[in-house]
Design a protein around this nucleic acid. Structure first.
Lengths: 232, 232
DNA sequence: ATCGATTGTCACAAAAATGTCACGTTTACG
DNA sequence: CGTAAACGTGACATTTTTGTGACAATCGAT
């Protein structure tokens, strides 16, 4: 992840537990124990998400949420409220304030992470996408940049998705049908051989920069993305 | 910051300490040691905020606050009261007078600045927005001025917001929908292709000043703001 | 009301990407 | 070897996506 998550929670043990969980799961985090500290941290670069305690000294979290959602610069920062109460009325209020989701204390780390990812996935899916690197090949789903030994590659959308799939599924043979399902999508009717053509285009783009053969043909079975060169 | 903060405080050492702190933190300030001086300074251009001592010779600060809050021209100037007393009754009085916040003497510079920022952020967030610079492009969210290599650009409001968003979110691909959410606002119904048109206008404005291509098209994905120039 | 600036939408042009085919090449296997 | 199947490759028509100019509606300041 490139950005960070702001944790606004006055109870220090809980706050620290949360940040611990976040960092265990690869999120950066910044802590705030009250509204004031929170406001001081809601500046550029804005957090990717805010975990906001319901009850805060010096004002409720709901008010902060409301004011953030009314400000044009902060309006789009997703907010997850932390509440000890499963109070239905309060939830309604919070949702009116534009809050994106709720987590009721006590919660399990697993649940918290799941909620966070769900919200981020809804708001900005690419944030969860991670850079992939493989033998000098680099692919960044966020910027859509692909480089081989720091030299830029120009790929079409399909080649990009195909390469992304291969780079996250290496050393394994995939049939044309499997590739169609995973890259083109299920229930799409295209000829099997179309895969060949795109493999061809991808190979051209990669080795066009003069490099080894990443995509190997497995006769009668499909294709395999691998660092090892086929000797046969 | 474009404007200034008016400091109304009769005790010279404290007043000077405050203005020192303010200027250290990038705020302009004007000093007043009594009500009369204060009134003389509350004219156009109005201060962005007033720091008002509770006890002033020739009248209490509360009265000044009240009269300011009753005047249609000065009503919206945020006021922070400086008080030596943590007296609850006084606070209530002050808040009744429409005062925006309190700072109890003695206070730390950090606290003062934080309170000021919090109030300004609440009242007029754009005042705190920071200038953005990127490869010779400069954007000032406060004055809405944009320059490229010190040459002024003329942008419409939407182009301005779009550019601001891009300059604070570089090297990342955003889909048309994401741009609509972030620049136009959520739940606004506008055609996807409208983004294209504004991209076009923004590109025209930027490169109209004869410069490189900041906004890159990522086919099938959206647009990306980047310093790197696409070669192919 | 009037003028200019701004904005969203459309229609068309331009560009890029895609899927398919035809044909050449390689491989497996008798 | 010879043959058939599997795969590579270039070309091409079609479709999809994006660029661009024009235009009417809207908004704000006179």
């Amino acid at each position: 992840m490139s950005g960070y998550i702001l944790v606004v929670e006055d109870e220090t043990p809980i706050r620290e537990m949360i940040t611990f969980v976040l960092e265990q799961n690869g999120f950066n985090s910044v802590e705030a124990s009250d509204i004031k500290q929170a406001m001081d941290n809601i500046v550029e670069p804005y957090p990717d998400l805010i975990l906001l305690d319901w009850m805060l000294p010096g004002g409720t979290g709901v008010k902060l949420a409301q004011s953030l959602k009314q400000n044009e610069f902060t309006r789009n920062i997703p907010i997850i409220m932390l509440t000890a109460r499963a109070d239905e009325d309060d939830k309604v209020k919070g949702l009116d304030a534009g809050v994106d989701d709720y987590v009721t204390k006590p919660f399990s780390p697993k649940e918290l992470i799941a909620r966070i990812k769900a919200v981020i996935r809804r708001v900005s899916p690419t944030l969860l996408a991670e850079k992939v690197e493989f033998h000098g090949l680099k692919l960044d789903p966020v910027s859509h940049h692909v480089t081989i030994n720091n030299e830029a590659l120009d790929l079409g959308p399909t080649e990009f998705r195909l390469l992304h799939f291969f780079m996250t599924h290496t050393e394994r043979v995939y049939s044309r049908e499997q590739l169609l399902d995973n890259v083109w999508g299920t229930n799409v009717y295209v000829e099997d051989r179309t895969v060949d053509v795109h493999i061809r285009r991808l190979r051209k783009a990669i080795s066009g920069a003069g490099h080894e053969e990443f995509i190997q043909t497995v006769r009668g079975a499909g294709y395999r993305f691998s660092g090892k060169v086929k000797t046969s």
